[in-house]
């Protein structure tokens, strides 16, 4: 059976993630496809999903309007592998508040037990690149691209911390759920996308 992966296409850098997953599938020589998915029907078909970077308030409000939020939550609870990138990690979080503005009323999936701070490293001028490591995923160094990135101040007892930058948590995993604060899809290194494709492939078979 072919592996059917999706990138949530509400708002953000959807195409960039599709290209990264495609090259990960090719590099791993796995029988699989990746498409953009948006409707509840499309989402119900996929074996794994990436929620891309973008604006979490936009993605949240529109996936609520579309009926997508509900099915997403159900599928993830049933064990569908999901990779949330930046805004995507915000969407997964149980609670999120902005560094400057504080808590605002925004629809979230509330599925990952983390306490998240939006725009945690400051505004766009403070956005940065740095080398990080995801040792437990078998990725010793990775070019972390942080764009108005969030960070995590606290995690639930069953959430694994994958990486930190200057004491701030920037990547986490809980079973089928991965959240990262940086943008692997903006680099040419597909190792994190490969890890995700492998995870989805293992869970499917």
């Amino acid at each position: 059976m072919s592996l059917n992966l999706g990138v949530l296409s509400i708002q953000g850098d959807i195409l960039e993630n599709i290209l990264s997953v495609q090259s990960a599938i090719n590099a791993l020589d796995i029988n699989g496809t990746v498409t953009s998915v948006r409707t509840p029907d499309e989402i119900s078909q996929v074996d794994g999903l990436i929620i891309p970077g973008g604006e979490s308030t936009t993605i949240g409000q529109l996936s609520l309007a579309n009926g997508t939020l509900k099915i997403l939550k159900e599928k993830i609870e049933q064990g569908m592998p999901v990779l949330g990138i930046c805004a995507g990690m915000v969407m997964l979080s149980k609670t999120a508040q902005d560094k400057v503005v504080g808590k605002i009323d925004q629809p979230l999936l509330e599925i990952l037990d983390i306490k998240l701070e939006r725009n945690s490293f400051g505004r766009q001028r403070e956005s940065f690149e740095t080398d990080i490591s995801l040792t437990s995923l078998g990725i010793p160094t990775f070019n972390g691209v942080f764009i108005r990135a969030p960070s995590i101040s606290d995690v639930g007892s069953d959430v694994e911390i994958l990486s930190k930058f200057n004491e701030k948590i920037i990547a986490v995993k809980k079973d089928n759920i991965i959240g990262v604060a940086f943008h692997p899809e903006l680099t040419t290194d597909t190792s994190l996308h490969k890890y995700f494709v492998n995870l989805a492939n293992t869970l499917k078979n």
Partner: peptide, 8 residues
């Protein structure tokens, strides 16, 4: 990259 996050 910032502009890419604004897409759609």
């Amino acid at each position: 990259g910032f502009a890419h996050m604004q897409k759609n």
